[in-house]
Design a protein around this nucleic acid. Structure first.
Lengths: 181, 181
DNA sequence: ATCAGCATGTAAGGCGTTACATGATTCA
DNA sequence: TGAATCATGTAACGCCTTACATGCTGAT
């Protein structure tokens, strides 16, 4: 029941590293944690408003002389405490919604070619994303002495390890299905 | 925009195999596809009502002589077509929301012990679930000649392969973090 | 007798997406 | 000059979860 909104923690987490605008936050979600988390403007901007009211973040004065408004936010002490409390909560919900697996699970009602094709679509997407993750990894390896970067590195290697497991599984699954064609 | 409800496809998929009550459907979601999909009564029962109106499923007469109502549903031809159409759609959304990874990504604001503990909690859960999946796998291996069971088997091996990759990653990540303690 | 599990459903409300609305800036 | 990107925000709406309400059945 309520006030369990994870987008708040994403925002606090990103702001704990540097001051950002709503637009920046959206970009960082897509780029840095996009392979295991999503967020849209329609959830970010309202959250920023409420969190400012709650005192977890504050607006920084806009110095960009008369030009277009551009609102940078900074995390407050309250915000940092909320972030740390959340990190220490034992409960974590790890929800996957794998439509590809759903289609595979029910794929028996169609010809094996349909399932093979669905696996191939999945495989292509994973291969592309894996390349991006490997590029992130090689950049992060240069700065591993930094504690923050070590944490980024660990999430990236999680992605790489699981994606590589996916690809091996794809190859074996396609082989098994092709025997039925 | 709208009519994109995946719970409908889950229901159609399960009913394509056998007639089921809403309660049965809930159980099968939890047991058979629980590691990559979720569903609650609050989404299942309303969906059943709407899908019956739409003609994708139909109620079977309740033969249980005067006792408590128990509504079994059977998929119709329309329902089977909708299921097959969905299987052939190229677009699939594979969304993960890994709160554990989120906590790890932002874990740099706390002591490494906090991240290590979070990884250990994740690890324990995965180990328990992995045992269940292995048990499913050994059962399915006996009946792989059946086309439906092959598809179930493939999703189960997906779970096993990724969970084993998770565990390897957990071990390596804990080691790296312990060097910082 | 009592408790867990079977069984169906509704209500309130949170969360989040998509689409819309608006306009500035930058670069080719 | 036109397109892409930067930038903020609102509105409508869909989806889903949690909690509630109700009662039967079977095992201990």
């Amino acid at each position: 029941m309520g006030k369990d909104r994870k987008i708040d923690m994403v925002i606090l987490g990103l702001l704990s590293h540097e001051d950002l605008t709503g637009y920046d936050i959206k970009k960082q979600i897509d780029e840095a944690i996009g392979f295991f988390w999503k967020g849209s403007f329609g959830s970010i901007y309202p959250a920023l408003g409420e969190m400012e009211k709650a005192g977890q973040i504050k607006k920084l004065p806009d110095r960009s002389s008369g030009s277009r408004e551009k609102i940078k936010y900074r995390i407050t002490k309250d915000g940092k405490n909320a972030l740390k409390e959340w990190l220490k909560e034992e409960q974590s919900s790890n929800d996957l919604k794998y439509e590809t697996l759903l289609k595979l699970y029910f794929g028996g009602v169609e010809k094996p070619e349909v399932s093979i094709h669905n696996i191939e679509l999945f495989e292509e997407k994973i291969k592309a994303d894996l390349n991006v993750l490997k590029w992130y990894k090689s950049n992060l390896e240069k700065v591993l002495d930094n504690n923050e970067h070590l944490h980024y590195y660990l999430t990236v290697t999680f992605g790489i390890d699981t994606y590589e497991a996916y690809l091996k599984w794809c190859a074996r699954s396609k082989k098994l299905l092709k025997e039925r064609v």
